[in-house]
């Protein structure tokens, strides 16, 4: 059943991603001040939204694991965190490319950029912690606790573009500026459409990774059983 859902999501996501790529590259006009490089914004921001949603999913799954002690929630948490890290990396890399063209430097120790990097490092620590614990129950418990703490860094990253007025551009979406239109409505609409496409892609990644995690756990259980029988 899940395989069919993944395939169905893929059938929707792939044409949407290709169509968006075509529209972004060939149909939308250049931005007045930034020129063609602004197009990277259609991937930079949706990648952050997808990563934030993945981290939120990991937080909910971690809390549920601590409440119910069911390993399936731990599997959801790790799948969502890994996917979130991949999208957060896309967010950071696209931001760096934009910075190189617009500011002339790959990286600035700007609070907003720094928070995004801290957030990435904190979740990378989550994966490192998992790899250092052998016992599945202990691993799930400690990872869930760390995920709860790590979610605080996501909240700060989310608010960072409002709290600190620095080099990084401020909020431009009307949903975050209280309805004030700071970019062309057509550009904003395209951004939402691409956000949907990346969210679908993120969901596919989480489901595939979840299947891998479940298979891995079955193999581990069988291995332990075989070991006990001998």
């Amino acid at each position: 059943m899940r395989r069919k859902i993944i395939l169905a999501l893929g059938v929707v996501a792939l044409p949407l991603l290709l169509r968006n790529l075509y529209v972004i590259m060939f149909l939308v006009p250049d931005e007045m001040e930034q020129g063609p490089i602004y197009r990277i914004f259609y991937y930079h921001l949706p990648a952050f939204f997808t990563a934030a949603l993945c981290y939120l999913t990991a937080l909910v799954a971690s809390v549920l694991y601590l409440a119910k002690k069911d390993q399936k929630y731990d599997a959801i948490a790790v799948s969502a965190t890994e996917t979130g890290l991949a999208f957060a990396a896309v967010n950071l890399i696209t931001g760096m490319i934009w910075g190189r063209i617009s500011w002339g430097i790959w990286w600035a120790w700007d609070p907003r950029l720094t928070w995004a990097l801290i957030c990435w490092l904190v979740y990378f620590g989550y994966l490192m912690l998992r790899s250092a614990i052998d016992d599945p129950t202990e691993r799930a418990k400690n990872s869930a606790v760390l995920s709860i703490f790590a979610s605080a860094s996501v909240a700060v990253t989310w608010k960072a573009i409002e709290w600190w007025r620095t080099q990084h551009p401020g909020p431009v979406l009307s949903i975050r500026t209280g309805g004030v239109q700071k970019i062309d409505p057509a550009m904003e609409q395209m951004l939402y459409v691409n956000t949907v496409a990346l969210l679908l892609l993120g969901l596919i990644f989480v489901l595939v990774r979840l299947r891998q995690e479940e298979v891995q756990r079955e193999i581990d259980a069988l291995r332990r059983y075989a070991h006990a029988m001998n």
Binding site: I118, L121, V122, G125, M128, L129, A132, I133, E138, N142, V145, L146, F149, A150, S153
Partner: peptide
Amino acid sequence: LTVNLRLRELMLPMLLYPM
């Protein structure tokens, strides 16, 4: 959180400093 880990001395700063 890290007291029972194999690489305790390494894991603690790795988790602690970013946080």
